[in-house]
Design a protein around this nucleic acid. Structure first.
Lengths: 211, 211
DNA sequence: GTCTATAGTCGGATAGAC
DNA sequence: GTCTATCCGACTATAGAC
């Protein structure tokens, strides 16, 4: 089955963006990997910036509705969810990115991390603008699990959590190599996600400090 | 008091590197901010790569010996330290970066984060090569606080921790603006560090999962 | 040690033929 | 939609005068 030029560009671009960051990935590199003509990027996407957004959007549009359904369920349930429940609700939507595309889960998280640290946070605004309500419902679910947490404290702890995840993924290839060499541990994305969840849940659920 | 060209370059470079990342910061931008000649970078540092290493090294050489003393104390003490003790030992060395230079603490952590995500991990090797023993003693202190944790599990949790900290700092300016606007909270670097420590200690100290 | 001037490379983008 | 050929700006690095 022949793949269209537009999709070939996006598939090569996402891999290279994840590996090298946005500004270290040139259009020439992308088009040579995709085996398409340089000018086709501008024909199909208009500019490099719009290509970046298209690549990220393809994942977000698949991921966010799944996450939203899971959070909605935690808000509607009779019993208040635990923090472990809430963070475990991320596992399936994240892993489903792997069915959509090879290495989809890590690519998605890597791109997310790049988006939050590269390019002065332009992509941060892009995400919160398009998916703000989903993030709000996530926050509401956490509140239900740990009502004593003030809104401000929750704000900080959820950003700590985001940092943990995206940084881990950004370094995951290197870290998995080290783990393999030093501990003879074969770690795939799924076990890594299952490793990080208790850490996150414990962090968000840490006792409240007096300031 | 007149500042030498070499130091003017490093001071401008560290601020711009932290704000924009290494590859999005050109030597032209650095030298124009520093109000020195473009060619002086190559005269004093040889290349852009060596400038990056010099900037990071200046912080690491001030930070690492302090951290090492604190970890040594935790290893020598009669009583085993708690995880909270260990992570609190980072506070003073980190804050002392602020005395050395204005905004030194956040700049240092920002640079560290850039070094771990930019440039395919070259800087990661640079750091572990020069300061591997300090990191080993840190690891030994954590082991003393939580002996049940396997070496492999500790490896992962400490990297989660690094991710939490560097990502938080990488976004700290934006996050502090939001917190100020939404919760009327004035957060400086010190309160942010003191906020993150319970999160980290709880995460590293999370119950051990059966795989 | 500092400057100007420039070599040499690589980047994004586009015009215009097919 | 796809291609070649280029434009033009920005970059690192260096040679050589002062």
């Amino acid at each position: 089955m022949r793949q269209g030029t537009k999709h070939k560009i996006m598939d090569s671009a996402e891999r290279l963006f994840a590996e090298r960051g946005f500004s270290d990935t040139s259009l020439r590199l992308i088009t040579s990997h995709a085996e398409v003509n340089l000018a086709s990027v501008n024909y199909h996407f208009g500019s490099k910036k719009e290509l970046i957004q298209a690549v990220l959007m393809r994942y977000l549009e698949a991921f966010m509705p799944q996450l939203d359904r899971a959070m909605q369920a935690h808000l509607d349930s009779e019993q208040a969810p635990s923090l472990d429940d809430i963070f475990n609700a991320f596992v399936e939507p994240l892993l489903s990115m792997n069915e959509q595309r090879k290495h989809g889960t890590s690519l998605f998280l890597l791109l997310l991390g790049r988006g939050y640290t590269d390019s002065q946070g332009h992509l941060r605004k892009f995400i919160t603008h398009h998916f703000g309500e989903v993030l709000d419902r996530f926050q509401a679910a956490v509140r239900r699990a740990y009502p004593q947490l003030t809104e401000a404290e929750m704000f900080w702890r959820l950003h700590f959590t985001l940092g943990t995840v995206v940084f881990t993924m950004a370094s995951s290839a290197a870290l998995r190599d080290i783990a393999n060499a030093d501990f003879n541990e074969q770690v795939n994305v799924e076990t890594l996600i299952r490793k990080v969840i208790p850490y996150l849940a414990a962090g968000v659920g840490a006792p409240i400090q007096q300031q």
